[in-house]
Simulated scan of single mutants.
Amino acid sequence: MIRTFRSYAQEFGRDPSILKIYVRVNGLITTSPLPENRRPFLGGSPDQIARDLDRVRKLNVEQIFFSEMVDPDMDEYVTSNLDDYIESLARLQSLVHA
C-alpha cells in the first residue's frame, strides 16, 4: 500500500520522499504470542509485533500508532489486566528501540 501511495504521488507530480506516512494499526497487542496462522500483521505479542516492525522500518514510515481493536475470535488472548497490558507495551517499546 505504501509503495502504491508513493507511486501515485510521483505520477501526480509530488515528491514522494517529502511526504510523511503515518500508519494506524487497528490490532491487538497480547501478553502471549498469537498462533501465526491467526495473527494479523502488526498484531500479537510484543516479540511478534517487533518482528513485523522490522519489515515496516524499511519503508521509511514516519510514525506508527496502535488503536487496539478487540477481535471476538481472539478473546482468549486478550488481557483485562491493565498492568499486564502496560507491561506488554513497555516490552514492545524496548524491543523496537533496542
Rank of each mutant, 00 (worst) to 15 (best):
E87S: 07
T31K: 01
R14H: 15
R14M: 14
E11P: 14
S45K: 01
P72L: 07
D52C: 03
I21H: 07
L34P: 02
S80Y: 08
S45E: 03
L53D: 06
L95F: 03
L42V: 05
T31S: 07
L19S: 14
E62N: 11
S94K: 06
Q63H: 13
E62M: 10
V70P: 08
D52K: 02
P16L: 07
E76F: 12
N81M: 02
F41K: 03
N26K: 07
V96L: 11
T31W: 02
I18S: 14
G43S: 07
R38K: 07
Y85T: 02
V70R: 10
R55K: 13
V61T: 09
V56C: 09
S32E: 14
Q63D: 15
Y22A: 11
L28C: 04
R38D: 04
E62H: 13
S94P: 06
V25W: 00
Q93C: 09
P16G: 08
R38N: 05
Y77P: 03
R24V: 08
E87G: 03
Q48G: 01
R57C: 12
R57Y: 12
F65N: 04
F5N: 12
F5K: 15
Q48C: 01
F12A: 13
V70L: 09
D71Y: 02
L53M: 12
S88Q: 05
M74D: 08
V78R: 00
Y8Q: 15
F66Y: 03
P16W: 08
I18D: 10
T79W: 00
R38W: 04
R14G: 15
F5H: 12
F5T: 14
L89G: 05
Q63V: 12
E68G: 01
R51T: 13
S17I: 10
M74S: 04
I29H: 00
Y77V: 01
P40H: 04
K58V: 14
K20H: 14
S7I: 14
D71P: 04
S80K: 12
F65G: 02
L59E: 10
N26W: 02
V56L: 12
S32Y: 09
